[in-house]
Amino acid sequence: MKIRKKLRKTNFEKRKLSWNPKITMQTLINFVTIIVGSFLFAIGVNSFMIAGNLGEGGFIGISIILYYAFGISTAASNLVLNFFILIVGFKFLGKRSMYYTILTIPMTSLMLWITEDWQVQSGEILVNTVFGGLFIGLGIGLIIRIGATTAGTTILARMANKFLDVNVSYALLFFDVIIVTIGVLTVLTLEQGLLTIIALYVATKVMDFIIEGMNPKKAITIISEKPEVLGKMINTEIRRGVTIMDGRGFYSKRDKDILYVVINKSQLTRLKRLIKRYDENAFVVVHDVNSVLGNYFI
Rank of each mutant, 00 (worst) to 15 (best):
A199C: 07
R270T: 11
T74Y: 06
V262W: 12
I3A: 10
K205M: 10
E191V: 10
N264F: 09
L7W: 12
S266Q: 12
E116C: 07
K9E: 15
I155E: 02
A203Q: 00
G147K: 08
K95P: 01
R8L: 14
D176M: 05
I155C: 07
T153P: 03
I3F: 11
N82Y: 03
I102L: 15
D288T: 09
G132E: 08
F163M: 10
R254V: 12
D117P: 03
N46Q: 04
F250C: 10
Q267F: 09
L93N: 09
T186R: 02
L259W: 01
W19Q: 06
K9L: 15
G132F: 04
H287W: 10
I220N: 06
K217Y: 02
K22R: 04
I211G: 05
K2W: 11
G241M: 09
D255Y: 03
Y296V: 07
K2F: 11
I85H: 03
V127C: 07
E116V: 01
I197M: 15
I60G: 05
V177W: 06
V242I: 14
K16Q: 14
V45S: 08
M1N: 14
S224V: 02
I85M: 01
F39V: 11
A76Y: 13
N46H: 00
G213H: 06
T186Q: 04
Y170K: 15
D288V: 08
A157L: 03
M111E: 07
S252A: 06
T108H: 05
I34F: 05
M1Y: 11
T186W: 01
L93R: 08
T149Y: 08
F92P: 00
I220R: 00
M207Q: 12
E228C: 06
L66H: 09
M98S: 10
R239S: 15
I87K: 07
D176Y: 05
A282L: 13
S266E: 10
I258D: 01
K14L: 14
N167M: 03
G94Y: 03
F12D: 07
K218F: 05
G89A: 03
F283N: 12
I211N: 08
I220G: 04
I87H: 03
P21H: 00
I64V: 15
Y100Q: 14
S252N: 13
G58R: 00
L271T: 01
I23N: 06
M214W: 13
I198V: 14
A69D: 13
D208Q: 08
A203K: 04
P106I: 05
F283H: 11
G294L: 11
V292K: 03
E116P: 01
N20V: 07
N20H: 12
F92D: 12
V202G: 02
A171E: 08
Q267V: 01
V88M: 14
L112E: 08
T269G: 04
K276D: 13
T27H: 13
D257V: 07
I155N: 02
A171W: 09
G241Y: 01
G139E: 02
V36P: 05
F70Q: 03
N78E: 06
L28F: 13
A69I: 12
K253I: 04
E124D: 15
K265L: 11
T196F: 01
I197W: 00
G133S: 04
Y260E: 04
L138P: 08
